[in-house]
Nucleic acid binder design. Structure first.
Lengths: 212, 212
DNA sequence: TAGATTGTTAATCGATTAACAATC
DNA sequence: TAGATTGTTAATCGATTAACAATC
């Protein structure tokens, strides 16, 4: 297949746009599974409850080029989205804190589909150390050095109690990670060069509480 | 204590503002626990990595009135935030799908602190029915009528596999719920009067993938 | 008092939406 | 061909940031 792509400017895409891309990818993969070869921005918009113009603008950042009157080639669009998100490559990741939320993330199938490879989990609970959770080996925090050796682990997912979040995160600062996905309530202090994405589960609840 | 509040316009607050409020509340509660009686917007901004002017604008929606030179009364601010978010009242909620993510949410302590009372969970797995998960009783889907009887349950939290999400959600449409917190990948079709908040765990990962 | 902080009004910035020519 | 859809350029909308008087 001959994929026609424009140059891709990842920094140029707005944050709201980037956050919508996974939904497009999910939808377009389903369309492919259902045998669709082309899909228009209008159809995507209807399915996701968005405006067609917003869909076109969003998809444009990936470099995809559609055909007037027809829409986008589904397979091309999947590749364009995966490429833009870098989800066509494997990304090694480690999970810190295998409590109930951590365990849930270990078992979340969507991540693996999107290039995320959780190679290990760390937990302070000796009962969990040495076992597998959802197929991922659990290590003690003493094993950080060993686990990171000769592996390019890009990111840690932090699912710890508030009190130990900062001090535990610090143990990974000099291990070559470039990103922390922070599910704790703590605003982490990190060295330059490490990007933190904080998730706040309560914010969605806040929206429902105020807007219902 | 004499709380001075302006009128509160919940619809007038922007969505980004509403989403930041839980972080303020969390921080200000910690400040209270540490014995602080007043806190300035500048301090809050520093702690959360925001601009002071944004903090002041955000907090203003709750009706809180600060003192120039001093800041906000911590206890007043907690009450103002809780009141605005309606988190000073109990909200009965039901969880649908007690898989790993559902289980994690059942055990998430922040929700209870914020007025959420998960009165029951539903699951199709007979092994789970009749048991407690994190203190919450698990019912079969046949028990919906019985569980909702004479109880004002405002919201369902949906943590189901994609394939059964829509059909399962529909069983709750005529039970008086006003909101659905949707953790599935499905864009739900719901009747008017039910507000849906969709969470996409992959969107945070997308931001990290693109902006790192 | 001097100076830090609030809250309001105005300016800027950025994202969404509209308009429309190009095109298959 | 006629008409639906793309992609670009412009207009609008809304959120963030700046400026500053009021004030404790």
């Amino acid at each position: 297949m001959d994929i026609q792509l424009k140059e891709v400017d990842r920094k140029g895409a707005s944050l709201p746009t980037v956050r919508r891309l996974p939904a497009y990818l999910h939808l377009v993969r389903s369309a492919w599974d259902e045998g669709m070869k082309v899909i228009s921005g209008t159809v995507i918009a209807n399915e996701l409850g968005l405006e067609p113009i917003q869909v076109r603008k969003d998809l444009a950042v990936t470099g995809i080029v559609g055909k007037p009157r027809v829409g986008y080639n589904v397979l091309e669009l999947i590749h364009a989205l995966e490429n833009f998100l870098r989800w066509n490559e494997k990304h090694k990741v480690v999970l810190v804190g295998a409590g109930s939320l951590g365990t849930a993330l270990l078992g979340y199938p969507e991540f693996k589909r999107n290039g995320m490879e959780i190679v290990a989990a760390f937990d302070s609970n000796p009962e969990k150390v040495g076992k597998l959770i959802n197929g991922t080996p659990v290590h003690s925090m003493d094993a950080i050095e060993e686990v990171f050796k000769n592996r390019d682990i890009e990111m840690i997912i932090l699912c710890l109690p508030t009190e130990v979040a900062q001090q535990s995160a610090e143990k990974f600062f000099d291990k070559g990670i470039r990103a922390i996905w922070n599910f704790t309530n703590v605003k982490l202090k990190v060295p330059e060069g490490i990007k933190v994405q904080k998730e706040d589960l309560s914010s969605g609840y806040a929206v429902l509480s105020v807007r219902t």
